[in-house]
Design a protein around this nucleic acid. Structure first.
Lengths: 111, 111
DNA sequence: CGGAATCCCATCTGATACTG
DNA sequence: CAGTATCAGATGGGATTCCG
């Protein structure tokens, strides 16, 4: 039986890949403020996240087309990350998710 | 060094857990139509997803408080799943994500 | 400064089989 | 019909180390 692959067809199944990264939503949220250097972004992340992981997640977001990476050829290196066009279109999702997250935190407190 | 745990504090880090399930967004989307039985829901999912996985994801969503499970004591068993209050509040996220997912699919086609 | 390579480990998924 | 138990494989994060 041929399994039905909804990737590229169903918007929810397709966008799921973007959401899976443990820190992806928080990264996208922080990138909304404009271009930022790697280490500056790292400092804004929770300390549990190593630079290895941040590097991987950024690479992943870059390959998915949500993030643009710009490397300046200089010593020491300077690399900036920013949202792409389709990445900026993600803003309504972040807004809705942020609102819901706050409501959910309140819900958790009452449990 | 004490790692800063943003769970329960940052709305993005907190809601991340809900998003991680491979099929969670699609399940939430389908549950928006009202109460549905286990097998009926299963039939709406991609065939790659086994009933084992669906069972686990529903249990997870139930434990997170997004889904309410109702078991009717009869033979054969009848179990219905539906969104909770906080689960229904997730609707704006699904709407935004659905819209973005469609735009992203268009973007992918042009690559 | 940014990042790749490697290893280890935890988690998750899918497959299969079994239960009431 | 709904769910659990178990196992194998895939995936992904964290820690460490090394590189330009």
């Amino acid at each position: 039986m041929t399994p039905i692959d909804l990737y590229g067809i169903c918007p929810f199944v397709t966008s799921q890949k973007v959401l899976t990264g443990k820190w992806s939503m928080y990264i996208m949220y922080l990138l909304q403020d404009g271009p930022i250097r790697f280490n500056a972004l790292k400092r804004k992340m929770p300390e549990e996240m190593t630079h290895t992981t941040l590097s991987r997640q950024l690479k992943s977001l870059e390959q998915e087309g949500l993030v643009v990476r710009t490397a300046y050829t200089q010593v020491p290196p300077k690399v900036e990350y920013e949202l792409s066009d389709i990445g900026r279109q993600f803003e309504p999702v972040l807004k809705a998710l942020g609102n819901w997250g706050e409501a959910y935190i309140e819900y958790l407190k009452k449990q």
